[in-house]
C-alpha cells in the first residue's frame, strides 16, 4: 500500500489537498471517496482511508476545509469551517466529483467509484450520490438529510429529501438507535422515501449504539456495531465496485 498527500482538481477548478491510499499489488480495482466528518481531515479518517486501501480499493479523502484553512491543523481548520457555516453543498459536489474523477484516472482503476461519509459526511455522501454518476454510496449516521439543522446550528445547509428521486446508485445506511442527529424517526422517514421512489437501499440501525460508533478514538465507539458495519461495507463494495 502507498499512502500520500496529493493535490487534485475540485469544485470550480480549484486545486485542493487530498489523502490518497492505494494498494500496489492488484488491479484494476474500484475507488472509494472518503468524506470526512465535521472534525475534519484528521488522523482517524486518514486511518479509515488506509483501511479501504488495505481492503483492495483506491481511496481518496478530499480535504473539504482546504480553502478555508490550507495547511492548518485539522482541528484549527474544523473550527474555522464551523464558524463559517460548514461546506456549501455545491462545492461539496464539485470536490467529490473531482475526487471521483481523479480515482477513475488512476491506471489501476476499474472505473467504478463509491462514496462513504461519516457524521456530516454521511449527509454529503447522500448528496453526492444524488448529484454524481457513482456506483455505490454509504451514509454513516448523516444528519439533516430530511430534517433541517436545529436552531443554533453552525451549519448553513438544508434538507435533501427533494433529491431522493435522483439517487443514482445503491445506498447503504448505518445508524445508531441512540442517535438524535439523525434520529431513528428521520432514518425511518428516509427509508420510506427511498422505498417510495424505488431506490435500492439497505439500512441498518444498531440498538446499542449512538452517533459516531465507528470512531475508535472516542467514547462513542461501539465495537460490535462498528465490526458489523465494516463487514456490511466490505460486502456492499464487493458487490458494487467489482470490475
Amino acid at each position: 500500500m502507498r499512502a500520500e498527500t496529493i493535490s487534485f482538481t475540485g469544485a470550480g477548478g480549484d486545486e485542493i489537498e487530498g489523502y490518497l491510499a492505494q494498494p500496489l499489488d492488484r488491479g484494476p480495482v474500484g475507488g472509494v471517496v472518503v468524506i470526512h466528518h465535521m472534525p475534519g481531515y484528521d488522523e482517524p479518517t486518514k486511518e479509515i482511508t488506509r483501511r479501504f486501501a488495505a481492503m483492495g480499493y483506491l481511496a481518496l479523502m478530499p480535504n473539504l476545509y482546504w480553502r478555508e484553512a490550507p495547511g492548518a491543523s485539522p482541528d484549527d481548520a474544523a473550527a474555522t469551517a464551523r464558524r463559517q457555516g460548514g461546506v456549501p453543498d455545491d462545492r461539496l459536489v464539485g470536490d467529490v466529483g473531482g475526487a471521483a474523477a481523479y480515482l477513475r484516472g488512476l491506471s489501476s482503476s476499474n472505473g467504478k467509484v463509491a462514496t462513504i461519509g461519516y457524521c456530516s459526511g454521511g449527509r454529503q455522501s447522500f448528496l453526492a450520490a444524488c448529484s454524481l454518476p457513482l456506483d455505490a454510496a454509504v451514509d454513516c449516521y448523516g444528519a439533516f438529510v430530511l430534517n433541517p439543522p436545529p436552531e443554533g446550528s453552525p451549519l448553513s445547509v438544508g434538507p435533501l429529501g427533494h433529491l431522493a428521486p435522483d439517487l443514482h446508485c445503491p445506498l447503504l445506511g448505518l445508524f445508531g438507535a441512540e442517535d438524535q442527529f439523525p434520529s431513528p424517526d428521520e432514518v425511518a422517514a428516509l427509508d420510506a422515501l427511498l422505498t417510495e421512489h424505488g431506490k435500492a437501499h439497505e439500512f441498518h440501525t444498531y440498538e446499542d449504539a449512538g452517533h459516531a460508533f465507528f470512531a475508535t478514538n472516542r467514547t462513542s465507539y461501539r465495537p460490535e456495531a462498528a465490526n458489523d458495519g465494516w463487514e456490511r461495507i466490505e460486502r456492499f463494495f464487493q458487490t458494487h465496485l467489482a470490475g
Partner: peptide, 9 residues
C-alpha cells in the same frame, strides 16, 4: 451525537 449547538460572538 453531534449537538451542533454553537454560539459566536
Amino acid at each position: 451525537m453531534c449537538t451542533y449547538q454553537t454560539t459566536t460572538l
